[in-house]
């Protein structure tokens, strides 16, 4: 091979390897840093292993908010209309955190089934429903209906992707 071409080929090979490695690292890092949203029903069904960082959310159950006597700890439950998950959080809650409001929390499930949140999000708009929560509610609703209509079919995924109503 012509030495000039050999040099160029080597350069191209180097670039391909470098770019490949960079993309690989980026994608690996991406897979480590994505936080999947799980519905209260999925959590209640034991689909989420303790310790994995996920996003969970639903409507804050009326009357479920209990504050610690000392410090800023607070415990509340969220629901998708079918199942409830207890969430514990230590810190300042957002302005729009209210009972009955849709919220999303980032954190991990501990071994006793309590979701330990490191962040609680409620959007700055009183009419806003986090889309994840909206989906979870609809899914639970349809699941419930399907169960009533057909006792044998326990899980349907038909609601997904339609997302009507918002």
């Amino acid at each position: 091979m012509h030495p000039q071409r050999k040099k160029r080929l080597r350069l191209i090979l180097f670039l391909v390897i470098a770019v490949g490695a960079a993309v690989g690292l980026a994608m690996y890092s991406l897979s480590q840093n994505i936080n999947l949203f799980q519905t209260p029903t999925q959590i209640a069904n034991g689909e989420v292993p303790p310790g994995r960082t996920i996003r969970a959310g639903g409507l804050v159950v009326e009357g479920s908010v209990v504050r610690d006597k000392e410090g800023l700890g607070v415990t509340f439950r969220v629901t998708d209309g079918q199942s409830e998950v207890p969430i514990h959080y230590e810190g300042i809650l957002p302005d729009l955190f209210r009972e009955g409001q849709g919220i999303v929390a980032l954190g991990q499930l501990d071994n006793s089934g309590v979701f330990e949140a490191s962040e609680v999000l409620a959007k700055h708009d009183e009419n806003y429903m986090p889309p994840e929560v909206q989906d979870a509610l609809e899914k639970a609703h349809l699941d419930g209906k399907a169960k009533m209509e057909n006792a044998n079919s326990s899980d349907t995924d038909t609601s997904y992707g339609k997302g009507a109503g918002y």
Binding site: N33, I34, N35, L36, F37, P131, D135
Partner: peptide, 9 residues
């Protein structure tokens, strides 16, 4: 499903 890419990434 729904996910978010964290600031860490």
């Amino acid at each position: 499903g729904k996910l978010s890419v964290g600031a860490a990434w």
